[in-house]
């Protein structure tokens, strides 16, 4: 504006920041669409205020319980649940890692012929599409209640997670190095060991540690559908309205997740 005032003889030139979406019709269509969606979306949430008011003292009771968690009354249950969760996590990660390697090799476009590629990619897709809890429901029905079903669930989820990321890493490797090793007359396994493993191993180890961390978090949840671990204990405590014990369980989960996250970050920084 001050420029226009300083040079009154020139025609005032306007400038506006060009919008992110060029076509004004498309732009307004998106705005209106988003608005309509919001109105309908929020409208379809019918919320019962009376129920909330009734639940309010429960909420207050819960916050109070968080300030005074009770670790002692249910300590045997809590410690058993935590131990179960930790063992489940470890077993699941080991199995998942071992199984994810061949799946990833099969799912790497530059290594696998396409029928194998299609099979491995669909294993990964199924494992990733379903939430752990959904898989746990099926596995509990198959293997019965308890941590075994939980461990299998987490192992299956690990295959999808690590398989996808490792396959992408393998697809991104430096092809010259592979070509050079192939040119020495190496066999297929030697090629894996000399050209591919050195390129993908450091990041893969980092991802395994990260997945260990995720598996523990998930192990706290799948217990709710009967797959063992601390989640089962939590579900029982909430079912009995024992908020102080539930708060103790939640606090222990937070502490362990915190420790796991920091040590996994430390391991990744220190060794890789």
């Amino acid at each position: 504006m001050s420029i226009a005032a300083a040079a009154p003889q020139a025609a005032p030139r306007q400038w506006r920041k060009p919008p992110f979406i060029r076509d004004p019709r498309l732009r307004y269509a998106i705005y209106v669409g988003a608005l309509i969606y919001l109105v309908i979306g929020i409208g379809s949430v019918n919320f019962n205020w009376d129920r909330m008011v009734a639940g309010l003292d429960r909420g207050i009771a819960f916050v109070a319980a968080f300030l005074a968690p009770d670790f002692t009354t249910r300590w045997t249950d809590i410690s058993k649940g935590l131990l179960e969760s930790l063992t489940m996590t470890l077993i699941a990660t080991v199995f998942g890692v071992i199984l994810s390697i061949p799946v990833a090799l099969g799912a790497a476009r530059n290594l696998a012929p396409w029928p194998i590629y299609a099979v491995c990619r669909s294993i990964i897709a199924v494992s990733r599409a379903f939430q752990e809890v959904v898989i746990a429901i099926v596995f509990v029905a198959m293997f019965g209640f308890g941590p075994f079903a939980g461990a299998m669930t987490l192992a299956f989820a690990t295959i999808g997670f690590l398989g996808k990321l490792l396959a992408e890493d393998i697809e991104d490797i430096d092809r010259d190095q592979v070509e050079a090793i192939r040119a020495t007359g190496s066999s297929w396994f030697q090629l894996l060991n000399y050209a591919i493993q050195p390129q993908v191993a450091p990041r893969f180890i980092g991802l395994c540690v990260y997945r260990l961390d995720i598996n523990f978090r998930e192990s706290a949840v799948i217990g709710i559908v009967g797959a063992g671990g601390i989640g089962a204990t939590l579900n029982t405590a909430l079912g009995r309205y024992e908020y102080d014990s539930a708060a103790a369980i939640l606090l222990s989960i937070i502490v362990i997740v915190f420790i796991a996250e920091y040590s996994s970050g430390f391991i990744r920084r220190r060794f890789l």
Binding site: D174, D176, T184
Partner: peptide, 19 residues
């Protein structure tokens, strides 16, 4: 595979396995 070992190859970007 047996024949490739009789043909040594040297690359432009060296193509060493870096790690």
């Amino acid at each position: 595979r047996r024949t490739r070992r009789r043909l040594g190859m040297i690359f432009q970007e060296y193509a060493l396995v870096e790690r």
